[in-house]
Nucleic acid binder design. Structure first.
Lengths: 153, 153
DNA sequence: TACATATTAATTGTGCACAATTAAAACTTG
DNA sequence: CAAGTTTTAATTGTGCACAATTAATATGTA
């Protein structure tokens, strides 16, 4: 437990300046390390982690606009457009303009993307095993992160 | 609370496939959103978040090899080398080979980097205010993330 | 209807992030 | 000491991530 009552000074002894006393660094590092733990499983399917997230949404909804994908994933079109174009090239999904609103681009699940659902569906379990984390701890951490996420929006 | 005893099926109703029931997505999204919350504060100093992390370490140690920086930040030379070269150009730090081991590159804090310590030292407090999070919740989340981090290494 | 405003993707440019490879230097061991 | 192994950064190539800008379309309003 860190001393939060300590005086805040610019010198090196300020505990708030230590990486692991902050919230952001453990968050940043854990996110990268956990994504890296997905890597060997995703690689078998030729997927990156953000591409896997797009497929998770398409398996649930089968059609979504870029805007809707961005709202779910908290990513903007500058990230999604090139990513979705790469996925289109692999024929995992299709991109077409909405007939009623030419500004919107509708992303649709294609058979090759549907075909990844079976193998990919085992990934969450495999990661839970890999984490070897008590369920209570997993659920508590996840809930706190979702809570933080709502605070940050 | 999610039903962890549910049968694991590849269909869309599998709760493990929903983004917010997983650990990785909230982690990934919260990390990006929190880094984004740093952005306006860091921008005043011309820093990016990973560059700020490098400075936090240099304010504490004043000299570190690339390897040591990488160990603290969990980043490899492919990420650090170009980042450190950009910081060298700004004269925040220096890069030189270790005399006794020519393979190692020693990163040293320069006066311009030292000068950022004063203003940057207020950033953690400002973010705590911005988060408006109960201290217990902050500490609990931070500790769980540090714990997860040790699990992942 | 015309005009201003808002919405939506795409584009552009910069900066990570990381896997894989390369190359140099240091160490180990026969 | 020489040959092989290990360590350390750098390099290369791909893929995000996001700020800022652009352009097309849609909407609201006088």
């Amino acid at each position: 437990m860190t001393d939060f009552a300590a005086p805040l000074s610019p010198d090196a002894s300020n505990p708030l300046l230590r990486l692991n006393n902050q919230l952001c660094f453990p968050l940043y590092a854990a996110s990268r390390m956990l994504t890296k733990a997905y890597q060997p499983l995703l690689q078998e399917l030729g997927l990156t982690y953000p591409q896997y997230l797009v497929l998770l949404l398409l398996w649930e909804h089968s059609e979504l606009t870029v805007k809707e994908l961005g709202e779910h994933l908290l990513l903007d079109s500058g990230t999604l457009t090139p990513l979705l174009k790469r996925m289109e090239q692999r024929q995992w999904l299709s991109r077409r303009r909405a007939p009623h609103d030419e500004r919107s681009v509708i992303i649709g699940l294609q058979p090759a993307g549907e075909a990844l659902r079976g193998p990919a569906c085992r990934i969450p379990e495999q990661l839970l095993t890999r984490l070897d984390m008590p369920t209570e701890e997993f659920v508590a951490l996840r809930n706190q992160l979702n809570h933080l996420l709502t605070r940050l929006q």
